[in-house]
């Protein structure tokens, strides 16, 4: 164990990112300001990208930033503006108390069972990344693109059809007639 690499820096980074993500996520679902919610969401999504980098998956991280923060959040902001949401605080973003309690109960019980399952099953498993190259981890852009266009070609095609369907669906829904 003396020569085992130390993962302390990784833990520190993870702790910083994770705690900010949790705080931000809680703010997303509790804030009274719609625009703030979108900005908190940016923080969560950025945190996810950071985690991807910690996991040596740079390409996914970049995609995460580009697609989520670059496109999806902007889309959200457009949605907020197009529906003329009040830009300041508003009181009617949440459901009534009963429904919120139900939501909290369901969320907590789900969390409980997931934590139980994860702790039981995965406690002894570690991600030992130190010492292996990105290539060995199978995370280089080249490897990812190779496997998308060979092994996972069929899912890829299906996803492209899905995107087309979503495109058409969104146009049909949003057009004014």
């Amino acid at each position: 164990m003396t020569n085992a690499p130390t993962y302390l820096p990784e833990y520190i980074m993870f702790g910083l990112i994770a705690s900010s993500m949790v705080v931000a996520a809680v703010r997303v679902v509790t804030t009274k300001n719609v625009v703030h919610a979108a900005l908190w969401l940016v923080l969560v999504l950025g945190g996810v990208a950071g985690l991807f980098i910690l996991l040596a998956s740079e390409f996914t991280a970049i995609t995460q930033v580009l697609v989520y923060i670059g496109a999806i959040v902007v889309l959200f902001l457009f949605g907020i503006m197009l529906t003329r949401a009040p830009l300041g605080k508003s009181a009617d973003l949440d459901n009534n108390v009963a429904q919120r309690i139900v939501g909290a109960l369901v969320g907590l019980s789900l969390l409980g069972v997931m934590v139980y399952g994860l702790v039981n099953r995965w406690s002894d498993q570690k991600i030992e990344l130190v010492g292996s190259s990105t290539r060995q981890l199978g995370q280089t852009t080249e490897q990812i693109s190779d496997s998308i266009f060979s092994t996972y070609l069929v899912p890829f095609e299906v996803v492209s059809v899905l995107l087309l369907a979503a495109l058409i669906g969104a146009i049909v829904l949003a057009r004014r007639d």
Binding site: Y7, E10, Y11, F14, A18, M21, V22, A25, V26, V28, V29, V34, A37, V44, L51, L55, F76, G79, I80, T83, A85, D92, L93, D94, N95, Q99, R100, V102, G103, A104, V106, G107, L108, L110, L111, M114, V115, L118, V119, W122, S123, Q125, K126, I127, E128, L129
Partner: peptide, 30 residues
């Protein structure tokens, strides 16, 4: 690094998301 660190964080995020879906009334927030 314990894999559970990531998995538990994901579980927490998931449940926060579930709470949001159930508790929010505004469509964009959902």
């Amino acid at each position: 690094m314990l894999i559970n660190a990531y998995l538990l964080l994901a579980a927490v995020l998931f449940c926060i998301g579930v709470y949001g879906v159930l508790a929010r009334r505004n469509g964009v927030l959902v």
